[in-house]
Design a protein around this nucleic acid. Structure first.
Lengths: 377, 377
DNA sequence: TCGGTTCATGAATCCAGCT
DNA sequence: AAGCTGGATTCATGAACCG
């Protein structure tokens, strides 16, 4: 039976949601019943990998590799694992907002089955992301390549969903101003970040690095969003969500993991609003109609605009449209028309003459946005 | 109907196999009927990815992206794609030797379904390999991460198969003497390597780089092995196989691709035996029994061996076994016994004294292998 | 001939918001 | 709900072209 353990909340709402910023104890599918339909923005799931280990594995020095042999990773067959996967994915699907997205991490043992099931359940894969480990465990027997990565699937709830969050500009800025790729490089979780028990042993066998979760959350959610982790473990998702100003919900069966996660999350200090501000691109800026430039006097009716190479020209009309050789329309439509294209960004295509030089009219828009419109003659 | 087109053969056998080093024209499953059971060593398959593209895609400069919209990549549903996948995988399974292995390449559109089906059909995944592209196509609309990799699944025919070829030492040597990882970095196929028609257009939309195939073939096959590619396309697998002294079989439906592949392969000059000699490590070296060291006089009966720290010692007996404190056995057994381990590499555990210094008996084995046994006193 | 610039292109499930 | 419109959006590579 699932029970809700409230933690220190991040979110003060007029109708407080009892499950927000808490860890729900119980089986994943049963516990999800505590959540309403379409109530979470992002799901990060780190399900059992269904490792099928033959026996003990020893290193060349005969030391024993501490394998993942926990009870929760044992399944009788692929069919059993598929049934389990289908059940939790469906439960997650119900609580995910139509504009939400889901991440699932796995290895070659399970990720193919998970990915196929996600497609069968009508999730729409956006990317598969490869987590390249800087320090993977070696292959001790020399019979395979070193297994040096894990795979994450990022998917929207529905094939045609357009509303999912992707902070493209923030990702690009974080990657030396080129697009963030689908292969990410991070160390495995170790050192001080790795939770250890009083006996010095790791608390959870598959604790994920916070850096990995940070990129996931920064890429696909906004501050204040609700992030669900149905296999909470020791709460990496919750800790990072709290630090990044997001709300979280965790589901976990084992009391030991819950205790460790709760203590860990309580110690997290959320970042301030300033630190959380992300790079945004033009899409986020307020719309300025070309007409406003005419009205403000930055562009005058009758003025002639050119493309950068003066191959085309057009005359500004008083209503904020352009005319050229019998054709007329918006700066975008006419830009497309004269070039024979379907589309065109008129702001960067059309230029005005200033002291003999051609400058894009986008510069004038920038002045409006900066509040300088009234200063223009 | 499938027909066999013989090419210049690499292999002269007393019972020539008509399909060897040839391209079989026809549908993959039907054409595979021409091959006997358990007749090929390695399969490399690059099946249709089942891309589901919405419409046209333009770059920011309004140019049109030349998408993969070929008829052979169209499937009515996931079910249809699964049925197709199951059929060709089963046909491949029949012709694959029990000691063989199979590679399948794909993207997130299809690889999860392929991987799950491979598991369902009792293939045993050895690795999933990520091909990281140095120069992937960008994401033009800024709505996802740049799709910068493809995934290959490497699997043995059966779960307990141990005989598959993996040239571990060659891979390690090629990777600056550290284990080859599961993420590989290669450019996409372009420039002079990319086959172009008379119109200057690419002959095949998805030609793979030869470097990728070279690593696959070098890692998982031996010279003289037979490599099957059931989706031959323009014959990258055949060209690389021939160059690396392997035999190939290709299956392809489109005559245009067959013509291009045949001409391409005919122009390939196989490497010589010297160039093909792979870096082989200890596993490939001839086995040397400890007894040989005793017989050759490099180790003398009654001589005392130690571990590196002189915590343990043992006496060499004339039959090539060791004795220590009432226990006796092979260098490996006794090494394990004195340490309380299940296993031990006696060659590196036991040391002999030489001018006051302890040196591993493995050094003596190396002298035998180098033909220096008789020079020893 | 050399160096700089322009241009084409690659397995791609690629827009959002308002009327 | 479907359609319309504003306008945002690309990286590495090699060939072609130019001065």
């Amino acid at each position: 039976m699932a029970s809700v353990l409230p933690l220190s909340g991040l979110r003060q709402s007029p109708e407080p949601l009892s499950w927000l910023n808490s860890i729900i104890k119980g089986d994943c599918v049963a516990a999800l019943e505590a959540l309403p339909d379409q109530s979470v923005d992002v799901i990060f799931a780190d399900p059992p990998y269904n490792l099928q280990l033959g026996g003990m594995l020893t290193r060349p020095d005969q030391s024993l590799v501490d394998a993942v042999d926990d009870e929760w990773d044992q399944f009788a067959s692929f069919e059993a694992y598929d049934a389990f996967t289908r059940a939790w994915l469906l439960a997650c699907r119900r609580v995910l907002k139509p504009s939400g997205s889901i991440w699932v991490i796995g290895s070659y043992h399970n990720i193919f089955r998970v990915g196929a099931m996600m497609q069968d359940l009508n999730f729409w894969i956006l990317n598969d992301i490869v987590w390249r480990k800087t320090n993977p465990m070696p292959n001790f027997k020399g019979r395979r390549f070193q297994n040096a990565h894990e795979t994450m699937i990022w998917a929207s709830r529905d094939p045609k969903a357009k509303g999912y969050t992707f902070n493209y500009d923030a990702m690009k800025a974080a990657n030396d101003d080129v697009q963030m790729r689908s292969d990410w490089l991070f160390p495995i979780c170790s050192g001080g970040e790795r939770l250890k028990g009083e006996d010095g042993k790791k608390v959870h066998p598959t604790q994920k690095p916070e850096a990995l979760l940070a990129r996931v959350i920064m890429a696909s959610s906004k501050p204040g969003d609700i992030i669900l982790d149905p296999f909470f473990g020791t709460g990496t998702t919750g800790a990072v969500a709290k630090r990044l100003g997001r709300n979280f919900v965790g589901i976990e069966r084992e009391q030991d993991y819950i205790d460790a996660a709760a203590a860990r999350i309580a110690a997290v200090e959320p970042l301030g609003k300033t630190e959380l501000t992300v790079m945004t691109g033009k899409k986020a800026e307020p719309r300025v109609a070309f007409n406003v430039l005419v009205e403000s006097g930055l562009v005058k009716p009758g003025q002639v605009l050119f493309d950068q190479k003066r191959r085309f020209s057009a005359i500004v009309r008083a209503d904020g449209t352009l005319a050229s050789g019998g054709e007329a329309g918006s700066i975008h439509r006419l830009g497309a028309r004269v070039q024979g294209f379907d589309a065109c960004n008129g702001w960067t295509f059309w230029h005005y003459e200033d002291e003999g030089q051609l400058k894009p009219i986008d510069d004038l828009r920038a002045r409006i946005r900066a509040g300088l419109g009234k200063l223009a003659d």
